[in-house]
Every structure is written in structure tokens, then in C-alpha cells.
Simulated assay, not measured.
Amino acid sequence: MKMIDAHIHLDHYKDKEIQVLMDEAGLIDALVSVSFDLESCKRNLQLASEFEKVRPAFGFHPEQPLPIVEEQERLFQWMEKHRTEMIAIGEVGLPYYRKADRKISAKEYTEYIALLEIFIQRAKEWKKPIVLHAVYEEAPIVCNLLEKYSWNRAHFHWFKGDQKTIARMIENGYFISVTPDVVYEAEIQQLVSIYPLEQLMVETDGPWPFEGPFAGRITHPNMMEESIRVIAKIKGLSVGEVSEKLRENTVSFYQI
């Protein structure tokens, strides 16, 4: 079983943890390491130079205060300079959890949307996939922007949403990826039962911790083995068939 981790924050692990993960990554062909901000982008680029399996994505995670204009300009200038070295733009999106916690005003929320729109424009201009943090009611807003720019190389990681949005995303050809919580979360299992295997990938979102059989363990790409077994069971297919298709999807989407 060969696997690709379609979404991990490798730069958020400690140096010793990264080395252990890479030493134990015999089943892993590649890891798409997404970025949090400019410093995170630089760190992921460094990791990609140290480890052949690391494929960096550059962006700004929305679940944090917005960067000021000058910081945004520095980020986009740096991304422009290093765009041939990135596999995708990401992680970008909208601040669902900050909004739910009432940490942002309505005006600030429109600024998050404006920043995301620039990232989508750049994705199309640079012909790069875009890795999206957009769940529940945020997802339709992101779909509107993707449709506005006719860009469908979109990967909604750890997605959660309503049936109407799911159908829209499938129709538009967007990909989703599921984390190890598919092993024990009914909501994610239901999503997998609906979403076409041809538009699925697997991820860890590490170092985010998981529960169930993974409780108390550091998040490791090898956990995706269990994810794949559950996906195979849901789809009524062999583990080998599903494993190969998920890998094929990720290779094709990210042009690895």
C-alpha cells in the first residue's frame, strides 16, 4: 500500500519528530506540506530541500488574524518568486471557527473573502491547485469565487458541509480529502459514501491529534492505512483498489 498525504503541516512538527516521520515513511510516496504564513512558507521550502518526499504549498491559513497590507504584499511577492517551487497554493480559505467564536467583525470577514479571492486569482494565473479551508456555510462562498474565476483545481481538505454544497462540489469537479477521523466519525463516513472515489484523497492534517484508536499518539502519515481500509469498506471495494485509486487521484491532481 503506497500512500500520499495530501495535507500535512510538516513545519509544525519538532525537528526530531520530522526526522522520525521521514524515517518511518516507507509507505509514503509524498507529503503535501501546506503553509500557515510567510515564515511557514519558508520553512516548508527548506524542508522540501532536505526531504525528497516533501512537496510544499504556500499560502496563509485563515484561522488567524489577517496580515496587514504590507505583510500581504511581502507574502505574494515571495510566492511569486518561488512559484515554480510550490506544488500548490495553500492552505487558504475562510475563518469558520474564528467567525463562530465571534473573534472577527463583519467588516473583517469581508477582508478575509477579499484575500481569498486574490489567492484564487493567483492560482489561476500561475496554473496551480488551491488547497482550501472551507467548511459548512463557508464552502458555498468559496464555490462562488471558484466559479467566478472558472478555476476547478480545488482541494477542500477535511471538508464538512450540507448535501446541496456536496452535490455542487462534485458537479464542479472539486476534490476533497479525509483525515483519520473517518475511522470513527459517522459524519465523515457518510461524506465518503456520497463523494465519488475519483475525487477523493487522504490526509492527516498533522500534527492535529485524533481520537478513537489514535488517541494519545502523535499524528503520523502511516495512520492513513486505517483510513483507506475504512474507505474501502464503505465503497465496497478492495483495499488495494482503493489505495491505488487514491494515490492516482493525488498524483494527477497535484501533478506529482
Rank of each mutant, 00 (worst) to 15 (best):
L132N: 01
E137Q: 14
R122C: 10
E85D: 15
F119T: 02
W78C: 07
P95K: 01
M79N: 07
H133I: 01
A134Y: 00
V142L: 07
I68S: 06
I113K: 07
T110Y: 03
I113R: 04
K107M: 08
A114S: 14
K107E: 15
K127S: 11
V142Y: 04
I130H: 01
A139T: 15
I113T: 09
D101V: 00
Q77M: 08
R122H: 10
Y96D: 09
D101F: 04
L66H: 09
H82A: 13
Y112D: 06
I120Y: 03
E137H: 13
E80S: 10
Y136A: 10
R122G: 10
Y136C: 02
R83Q: 13
A123D: 08
L94F: 11
W78G: 14
Y112V: 06
I141M: 14
E73A: 13
E137Y: 12
R102Q: 14
M86W: 07
W126G: 13
V131D: 12
E138H: 13
L75W: 01
E91G: 14
E91N: 15
Y97C: 01
I113F: 00
V69P: 00
A100E: 10
S105N: 05
P67M: 11
V135S: 09
M79C: 10
E85V: 15
A100P: 12
Y136F: 12
K128E: 08
E125D: 12
H133M: 03
G90L: 05
Q77K: 11
K124I: 07
K128F: 04
W126C: 12
A106E: 10
E125A: 11
E91R: 04
T84F: 06
V135M: 01
Y136D: 11
A123T: 08
Y97A: 01
I68H: 08
W126E: 14
A100Q: 10
T84G: 12
K81F: 13
E73V: 08
E91F: 07
I120V: 15
V135W: 00
E117V: 07
R122N: 14
Y112L: 01
M79K: 04
I130D: 05
R102Y: 05
M86G: 13
A139P: 06
R98E: 07
E125Y: 08
D101E: 10
L66T: 02
K99G: 01
L115P: 06
Q121A: 09
E111D: 13
I68G: 08
E80V: 04
P67Y: 05
V92P: 04
E71M: 00
Q72C: 05
E80D: 15
